[in-house]
Simulated scan of single mutants.
Amino acid sequence: MVHYQTRLDTTFAALSDVTRRGVLEQLVGSDASITDLAERFHMTLTGMKKHVSVLEQAGLVITEKVGRVRTCRLGPHRLEEEAAWIEQHRQLWSARFDALDEVVAHLKRKEKAHVQGKGK
């Protein structure tokens, strides 16, 4: 369980930043060097390396150094566990909201009946 939570924490932390999500979107189309990514996002090379490192720790990106160029590509982590966790909680909240809708509908019917009873 602890490993599962750690992995979720690492993944969600990696995805919590708009730049890192943007990097993933860029890599869907094609691999890119860290230099190219830094230019696309108007960042320093050091800043982009930090973002790529976070994505790499989460398994979302793999880097390979050939000569002086470090190329990034999408990693093997496909977010199945995270999607399952989100779906489980979506179902829970959906059920809770459905139950709340029933309570509200019941109270509205009760209020309407009370108002109609007073009008007679």
Rank of each mutant, 00 (worst) to 15 (best):
Q26Y: 07
L79F: 06
E81L: 10
V61T: 00
R96L: 12
Q88M: 10
L74D: 04
V103N: 05
V66A: 15
A99C: 00
T71W: 00
S16L: 03
V18C: 09
K108C: 09
R40V: 11
A13R: 15
H114T: 04
G47N: 13
Q91K: 13
L74M: 10
E56L: 01
C72A: 14
L15H: 05
R90L: 14
G29N: 12
K50Q: 15
D17G: 08
E80K: 06
K118C: 08
K110E: 15
I62R: 09
W85D: 09
G117C: 04
A83L: 09
H42F: 10
H51M: 02
T46E: 14
K108Y: 05
Q57P: 02
L107C: 06
I86M: 10
T19Y: 05
Q5V: 06
L37C: 09
L55R: 02
E111W: 04
T35N: 13
E82I: 03
R73P: 00
R68D: 11
L100Y: 11
Q26W: 05
D101I: 03
Q57R: 05
P76L: 06
A58Y: 03
Q116T: 11
S94A: 10
K112P: 00
R109M: 06
H106T: 14
S16Q: 12
V115P: 01
E81D: 14
Q91L: 06
H106I: 07
L27V: 00
S30C: 10
E111R: 10
F41G: 04
D9V: 08
K65W: 03
K65R: 12
L79I: 09
H51V: 04
A113C: 01
Q57W: 03
D36V: 06
W93P: 01
S33C: 07
Q116M: 14
L60N: 00
L15F: 07
E39N: 12
T19G: 02
D9L: 12
S33V: 07
T71C: 04
R40C: 05
T63C: 02
W93N: 14
T63Q: 04
G29A: 14
S94F: 08
A113G: 06
R78K: 13
R109V: 05
V115Q: 14
V54H: 02
T44F: 03
R78W: 03
Q91I: 01
R7E: 11
T19C: 08
K50T: 14
V66P: 00
K108S: 10
R73L: 00
V115F: 11
S30T: 11
M48S: 03
H3M: 12
E82H: 08
V69A: 07
M48V: 02
L27D: 00
S16T: 05
T46S: 15
S30Q: 13
H51A: 01
A32H: 08
R90T: 12
E80D: 13
L24G: 02
L92N: 09
R20G: 02
T35K: 13
F97K: 07
V23W: 00
I34Y: 00
A58S: 11
K112W: 09
L92R: 15
G67D: 11
G47T: 08
G22M: 04
Y4G: 09
H114G: 02
V28I: 12
V103E: 15
F97Y: 06
L60C: 03
T44L: 05
Q116W: 06
T63D: 05
K49L: 11
Q116L: 13
S16W: 11
M1P: 06
V28Q: 09
D101H: 02
Q57H: 11
F12P: 02
H3T: 12
V18Y: 09
R40M: 14
K49R: 15
